[in-house]
Simulated scan of single mutants.
Amino acid sequence: MANPWAGEVELVLDGQRHVAKLTLGALAELEAGLGTGTLIELVERFEGGRFSTRDVLLLVVAGLRGGGWQGTAADLLSVEIGGGPVAAARAAAALLARAFTVPEAG
């Protein structure tokens, strides 16, 4: 089960649960994959609802790899994501939000 306080998001790929997390290494991989633009611009696209399917794919792959998954973007193209594209977009948005939000002290 994913721990949102640790920045984790759960995704189901081909019926198997995976934990995704944007670690520093995953963020660096994501930034390299974007080619142009910054992570801040990516956050702004998500906040404004102007993200692309490529943005979602790159975020999901980076998050899964941050969670220990050994696959690639090409691998993700051939799996069924539980909940479909909408669930993938929600997971991508949650990954971004959790990576850049500091939990409030309890």
Rank of each mutant, 00 (worst) to 15 (best):
I81G: 02
A28F: 13
A73D: 07
G106C: 14
P103V: 10
E47N: 13
A20K: 08
P85G: 14
G71F: 11
Q16I: 11
E80N: 14
G7L: 03
E44T: 00
G82D: 06
V60G: 01
G71N: 05
E104D: 10
G48W: 04
N3M: 07
N3Q: 04
G7R: 00
D14V: 01
T38E: 00
P4Y: 10
G25W: 10
G33Y: 02
V9S: 01
G63H: 06
G35A: 05
A87L: 08
E104M: 09
L22K: 09
A62Q: 04
P103Y: 03
L42E: 04
G35T: 04
P4W: 08
L76V: 07
N3V: 06
L76Q: 04
H18V: 06
W69C: 05
L42W: 00
E29H: 10
A26Q: 04
V79T: 15
L57W: 05
I40P: 09
R65G: 03
A88T: 14
A105Q: 11
M1F: 10
L95I: 12
L30W: 01
E41S: 06
T23L: 01
E41L: 06
G83M: 12
Q70R: 15
I40M: 13
A32Y: 01
A20C: 08
A6H: 09
A26M: 11
G68V: 12
W69V: 09
G37C: 06
V61C: 05
I81D: 08
V79I: 12
P4R: 14
W5C: 10
A88E: 11
A105V: 15
A91W: 00
G15Q: 01
H18C: 05
I81S: 06
L39D: 02
E44L: 05
K21I: 08
G37M: 06
L34G: 07
R90N: 13
L96E: 02
T101P: 02
L59C: 03
H18W: 15
L77G: 08
A99K: 00
F46P: 02
A89G: 09
F51K: 01
T53A: 14
G106Y: 07
W69I: 07
L24I: 09
R90W: 01
R45C: 03
G66V: 02
L58K: 00
M1K: 09
A32E: 12
T23V: 04
G25D: 07
G84L: 09
K21G: 04
A92S: 04
